[in-house]
Design a protein around this nucleic acid. Structure first.
Lengths: 334, 334
DNA sequence: CAGGTGAATCGAAGCGCTTCGAAACACCAA
DNA sequence: TTGGTGTTTCGAAGCGCTTCGATTCACCTG
C-alpha cells in the first residue's frame, strides 16, 4: 500500500506538498498539482484513514444510533439509514452504526475515542438518556424526532401535529363528520414517544366540533380486529378513519372488506405512513408521508454545516418539516 | 481529553507500560496494573481510535454493504444489520455502513484507506461486481448469500434448497397433492439472485410426482390478485400454497378469504419468511424462517476468527444453515 | 560466588498524515 | 539597486498509540 511519502518521492516533491494538493488548503502551482496527481494515479495511492484522523483530529465519520426497539417502523428506519449514509458520503463522511443494545454508552464511546465526529439519534423518546449522553459527549448531535427537552440539541422531524391536522381537514373537507383515529400501540403513548402525542394533539385540535375517537392499537391481526369491531359497533356511522401504526394497515384493509365496508365508498381511510406502504394496498391509500429520506438528509446537512462553519451551535433548534398529503384512492366524499 | 501519556505520567510509569496494561500483550505486575487502572479511571481516559488504528494497523471496524435494492427484504436486512452490529461489538469492532449507491467502489475505498478491516456483503446476486471488489480488496470478506462463483469468498446463507424441500414435504406429508409456489417477482429470477433459484430447485426436486406450478409474483395487491386468480382458475383443486415473497403475504391472505378459501380448511399455506411476519397474520403462518440474526452473527464470527487466527483463508467455503419449519395455524391435513 | 533465567519496566522508533513557520524565488515599485 | 509583496515549496514537529529491543533487578543453580 503506497503512502503519502511514496507519492512525494515519486513526484519529486515534499510530503507536505502532496498533502496540500490533496486538501487544497494552500495554493500549489498547476504544474506540481498535475505531477502529484499523476503519481497518485500511478501508485494508486489512498490516504490512510487512521493517520488522517490522528493528524487532523477529524475522523470523517458520523455515528447513527438506531432505534431502541427493532420491530418498529422498520421501513422508515431503513430509509433513514440509507439517506443518512448517502448524504454523508456526499460530504466525505462514512456512517457508523450504533445499536439499541449499546444505548447511551455507545454514544459516549464513539465520541470520546474520536471514532465519530458527530452523532445522529433516531427514534427519540420524550425522555431518552441518549440525549443527555449526546449533549455531554462533546460532539455535535442531531435528533431525528423531538424529545421533551430539546435544549442544546438540534432536532429535525415531521410536523406530526400539522400532519394530524391535515388528515382531519382532508376528511372533514370531504364531508365526513364521524371519525376514528387508530393510533400507535398503547405502549408507544405510555413511553411518551413524542411523535405519537403530537399527532394526537394535532388531530384533536383540528377535530373541533366533529365527532372523533382515538383508539390505540397494536399491529397484530387480532388487535386490529378487536379495535375495528369496537369502533364499528360503538359508532356504526363512522365514515372516516385515520391510521398511524403502519403495521395495522394490511389487516385493517382486509377486515374492512369482511365487515362489508367498501373503501372509499362506505368509509374513507387516511394513513400516516411511507408512500411505499400506501401504494401497496388496494385501493391505494390517501396518506401523509413520513419523509424519511428528507429527515436523514437534513440531519446530515445540519451536522456537516455545523462542523464546517465552526459554529458550535448549542442552539437546540427544532426544525419541523411541513407535512404533505397525497390523495389516492382510499378517500371520497361522504 | 486525556491521552496515554497523561495516564502514564499520572501513574508514574512509561507510556508503553500503560499500553501493555490495556492490551495485555506483555505481563505487568499486579501492583502496576492497579495503579494504571486507577489513573485511567481518574482521568477518564479513552484511547484515540485513529491513533490506535495507525499504530496497530487495525481499525477495528467491519464494513457492512447493504442491498442494492432498498425495497427488498427490509425487515430481514434490518435484522441482519442489527445482528452484525451487536456481534461485532462483542468482539470490539464497530460497523460501517456501505450503501448500494457506492457499490463496489465503496468496498475498495474502505479497504484501501484502512477504514475497515473486513467486509460483509449482503443481498448477493449470482454475478455481483462487489464480490470481485471484495476479493481483490485485500481484506477478509464474507457474503451473506451465495454467488455463482464463490471461489475465494466465504459465504453463509440459509439452505434455501432444503427450505423449499421442507415446505413441499410438509404439505405432501399432510396429504396435499396439488401445490402452487408463489415465488419472488420475475425480476428476481432474471437477475439470477441465488436464493430464489435455489429455493425453486429444492421445491421442484422434492415435488417429484406431485402436481406443482411455479408462479413468480410481485408484491403489489393487483399482482397478487392476478396470480392467485390464475392459480385458482387453472387448477381449482389446488390445496397447498408455498409463498416466498413476503410482500405477497398480506394481500394473499385477504384475497384468499374473498375467494372463499378458508385457511387452513380449504387451502394450506406455507411461507418462507421471518417469524415476525409469519406471526402477524390470522391464522399465523406455518413457515420456514429466514434466520437473519444467525446469518449476521455467523458472518461476523467467521471474519473475526479469520482475522485473529491469522489464517488467510482464501477458502471460499459455503456454509449453509439448515432450515427449520415451524408449524403454525395455516396448514392442515387435506 | 559467577553466571544464567525470567519477570517487569523503560525508552525510542515508528505508523502515515497535517500543519506551521520559514526558505526560496520571482516580480514590481521606489 | 534595494526592499517589499506574494506565490510556491520545503522541513520538521507533532497527533496518540504500539511494539521492539534493551535494561534492571531478583532469584536460582551449579
Amino acid at each position: 500500500m503506497a503512502t503519502l511519502a511514496d507519492v512525494a518521492r515519486h513526484a519529486g516533491v515534499a510530503a507536505s506538498t502532496v498533502s496540500y494538493v490533496l486538501s487544497g488548503k494552500r495554493s500549489v502551482s498547476q504544474a506540481t498539482k498535475d505531477r502529484v496527481r499523476r503519481s497518485i494515479e500511478a501508485l494508486n495511492y489512498q490516504p490512510h484513514a487512521g493517520a488522517r484522523a490522528l493528524a487532523s483530529s477529524q475522523a470523517h465519520v458520523l455515528a447513527l444510533a438506531l432505534p431502541l426497539r427493532g420491530d418498529l417502523y422498520v421501513p422508515v428506519m431503513m430509509e433513514i439509514a440509507i439517506a443518512v449514509t448517502t448524504r454523508a458520503r456526499a460530504f466525505g463522511y462514512d456512517v457508523l452504526l450504533l445499536t439499541a443494545a449499546e444505548g447511551s454508552e455507545g454514544i459516549r464511546r464513539v465520541a470520546s475515542t474520536s471514532r465519530a465526529d458527530a452523532v445522529i439519534l433516531t427514534d427519540i423518546g420524550l425522555a431518552d438518556d441518549r440525549i443527555e449522553a449526546a449533549r455531554n459527549s462533546g460532539v455535535p448531535a442531531v435528533a431525528i424526532g423531538v424529545p421533551a427537552a430539546p435544549a442544546g440539541l438540534d432536532c429535525v422531524d415531521l410536523d406530526f401535529a400539522a400532519a394530524g391536522r391535515l388528515c382531519v381537514e382532508h376528511l372533514t373537507g370531504l364531508g365526513h363528520r364521524v371519525l376514528a383515529f387508530i393510533g400507535e400501540a398503547e405502549a408507544v403513548y405510555t413511553r411518551r414517544t413524542g411523535f405519537a402525542e403530537r399527532t394526537l394533539r394535532g388531530i384533536r385540535a383540528a377535530a373541533g366540533d366533529v365527532d372523533l375517537v382515538h383508539r390505540p392499537c397494536e399491529g397484530s391481526y387480532e388487535a386490529v380486529a378487536a379495535t375495528l369491531k369496537k369502533i364499528l359497533e360503538d359508532r356504526p356511522e363512522t365514515t372516516g378513519l385515520i391510521v398511524q401504526n403502519e403495521a395495522v394497515i394490511p389487516p385493517l384493509m382486509s377486515l374492512l372488506s369482511s365487515h362489508r365496508r367498501a373503501v372509499p365508498d362506505d368509509i374513507s381511510v387516511v394513513a400516516l405512513c411511507p408512500d411505499q406502504v400506501a401504494e401497496q394496498t388496494a385501493p391505494r391509500l390517501t396518506s401523509v408521508t413520513i419523509p424519511a429520506a428528507e429527515l436523514g438528509h437534513r440531519a446530515v446537512e445540519l451536522l456537516v454545516h455545523r462542523m464546517t462553519s465552526g459554529e458550535d451551535g448549542t442552539e437546540g433548534k427544532v426544525r419541523l418539516i411541513p407535512p404533505s398529503l397525497t390523495v389516492r384512492g382510499s378517500t371520497a366524499a361522504r
